[in-house]
């Protein structure tokens, strides 16, 4: 096998020796890395790059989408009817629960005499389609088709119908990167619903497992315990379901036990997620009338922009936008 021993031949390439040229390029790359790591102006470069790469990613993903829509087209009618019936009951159920929640909230606020102490709830949500699932090198991320044009901001919570999905990271003009809660870089401040014990849930890199590495071995936790967001950290609103504890492995050596949990969110099968605005003063709070795009007409290289005033008057914002 040819080793990379001392050079025996003369200079190649254009003009200068390859070693010199490599040094120059390596320095340029290192400078870029340092700037990207430390500075903020490189964010603008990334913003532009994300705008450029988004159409490519949509194009590359289109065969998958075409396959899904074809499959949907051929779904049996009976299955649709069954699903429709199930969804209708689910909607009724949810509506009743929401009503009850609103009543409870009012009572609670009256009881403590602080109307403003009502815990933060989603003031607005926006559905977003998943354009690309990036499992490159085992990073658990997805790319969604909403960006700053839709008022999305960095570190915005992302949900699906069952629980927390993750938070936005790089936000481009029409797309955003979502860091899933199962990504090794993700930490979610959580609370064990049964006991109120607060800890941090960390991603493991496996698509259906998160871990609670900071629990002491004598912590009061059982298999089946529900983890909800604790509201600390300011990214996720408090009280939303995150995961259910599936396994507790005590270790003899360490004073910590290894607790694993399975996220409620269907991270592997979701094709649509929800972006949530829960603080009134959240950055990127959209100006003017809020519109949500009608889903199902995908792919959209440029999703619904905030409508001009005239058309907004003609077609007022439909639900699901504002919940008073």
């Amino acid at each position: 096998m040819a080793g990379f021993g001392p050079r025996s031949d003369t200079a190649h390439g254009r003009g200068s020796a390859p070693g010199f040229r490599f040094t120059l390029y390596a320095l340029a790359a290192i400078a870029l890395m340092v700037l990207d790591h430390r500075m903020h102006w490189i964010e603008h470069v990334r913003f532009g790059l994300q705008g450029l790469t988004y159409p490519v990613e949509v194009a590359l993903n289109s065969p998958v989408r075409a396959w899904h829509s074809l499959k949907d087209d051929f779904t049996a009618r009976r299955q649709l009817e069954r699903e429709n019936r199930r969804l209708r009951t689910q909607v009724r159920d949810l509506r009743i629960r929401t009503l009850r929640l609103a009543a409870l909230k009012r009572q609670y606020a009256e009881l403590i005499g602080l109307k403003k102490a009502v815990p933060p709830i989603a003031t607005r949500w926006l559905p977003a389609g998943i354009v690309d699932i990036q499992l490159n090198r085992l990073r658990q991320r997805i790319l969604i088709d909403r960006g700053t044009e839709n008022g999305v901001f960095r570190n915005q919570p992302v949900f699906d119908d069952y629980g927390i999905v993750g938070q936005t990271m790089q936000v481009g003009p029409w797309s955003a990167d979502v860091l899933l809660i199962t990504d090794p870089q993700s930490d979610v401040p959580v609370q064990i619903e049964r006991t109120g014990l607060r800890t941090i849930a960390v991603g493991t890199g496996a698509p259906d497992t998160i871990a609670l590495p900071y629990l002491p071995a004598n912590a009061n936790v059982r298999v089946g315990d529900v983890l909800v967001t604790s509201g600390l950290g300011g990214v996720f609103p408090a009280g939303y379901p995150v995961a259910r504890v599936t396994r507790i492995r005590p270790t003899d050596v360490q004073p910590m036990s290894r607790v694993l949990a399975k996220p409620f969110a269907h991270l592997q099968t979701d094709r649509e997620v929800m972006l949530i605005w829960f603080r009134p003063g959240a950055p990127g709070k959209p100006h003017g009338p809020v519109r949500t795009g009608v889903r199902g007409a995908q792919p959209l290289p440029a999703p619904a922009r905030p409508a001009p005033a005239a058309s907004a008057k003609a077609a007022p914002a439909i639900s699901p936008t504002q919940r008073p």
Partner: peptide, 18 residues
Amino acid sequence: LLGEHALAVALVAYLGVR
């Protein structure tokens, strides 16, 4: 990180050229 792959791929190319 911007520049990470740039450095690594440039190194591969350098070894190839050399």
